[in-house]
Computed example of a mutant assay.
Amino acid sequence: MKKVFFICLLISLVSCKNVSENSDTAIALDTAAIVIDTMSNYVPTIAKNNEWKYDTSEDKMTSNITKFASITSNESLSLDFPYDGINMGTLQLRKKNGALNIMVLIDKGQISSDYDDQNVKVRFDDDKAITFSYSKSADNSSDLIFIDNVTKFLSKLKKSKKTLIGLPLYQNGTQILEFKTENLKW
């Protein structure tokens, strides 16, 4: 679908251009071919300067403050239909009523949850990958997991510049989300 869109866009651009020389047309068509070829292996990326974003929210009934820190993955997941397209991951820390939660969310898709094996591999910088168990959300959302052993995870996260999380995705295998996690202020 993306490839067809870009082909149509490029053809319309080339045909709308008032070209006086054949060489200009050949260059435009060569450029179009390069863009189309590149699109076949296209994985959308986001700016490399991802930074932690901090926020708070107040419960109007209790006046309790919930604190958040979140960061978006460096690259999109590559999922099949109906979850194809740009699909970023988010690593989020939440402190609510004194309890810390560490969550991994994806824009769309389903994180696999096998009752016997709810684990993800996490690699902090160049260290050896560590297995962390996870829990599903209370409402059974399939695009969100809660990392268990938050103390160990947070300790490693605070020291890391880069964090890789291998997520098991329904009918799409395990895919790696990479986060630029340096400078966390938590």
Rank of each mutant, 00 (worst) to 15 (best):
M1F: 14
F5Q: 10
I7P: 04
I7Y: 08
S12L: 11
L13T: 12
C16V: 09
C16M: 11
C16S: 13
N18G: 04
S20A: 11
S20V: 04
D24C: 03
I27H: 15
A33H: 12
I34Q: 15
V35N: 13
M39F: 15
S40G: 12
N41I: 07
A47L: 05
A47G: 13
A47R: 10
N49Q: 11
N50P: 01
E51A: 06
W52N: 06
D59L: 08
T66N: 13
K67F: 07
F68G: 05
F68R: 07
N74S: 06
S76D: 03
D80V: 07
F81H: 12
F81G: 14
F81K: 14
F81M: 10
P82I: 02
Y83T: 01
G85K: 10
G89R: 02
G89E: 00
G89N: 04
Q92C: 10
N97S: 13
N97G: 14
N97C: 07
A99R: 14
A99H: 06
N101H: 09
L105Q: 05
L105M: 09
I106C: 03
Q110T: 01
I111T: 00
I111W: 00
S113P: 00
D116C: 06
Q118C: 12
N119D: 08
K121T: 01
R123C: 04
F124G: 03
K128Y: 04
T131F: 08
S133W: 06
Y134V: 03
S137E: 02
S137D: 04
N140I: 02
N140E: 07
N140V: 02
N140M: 06
S142I: 00
L144D: 04
I145K: 04
I145R: 04
K152N: 12
L154Q: 05
L154V: 03
L157Q: 05
K158M: 12
K161H: 15
K161V: 06
K162G: 00
T163F: 02
P168D: 00
P168A: 03
N172M: 07
G173C: 08
E178V: 01
F179I: 03
F179S: 08
K180T: 06
T181L: 04
N183Q: 09
K185R: 15
W186K: 12
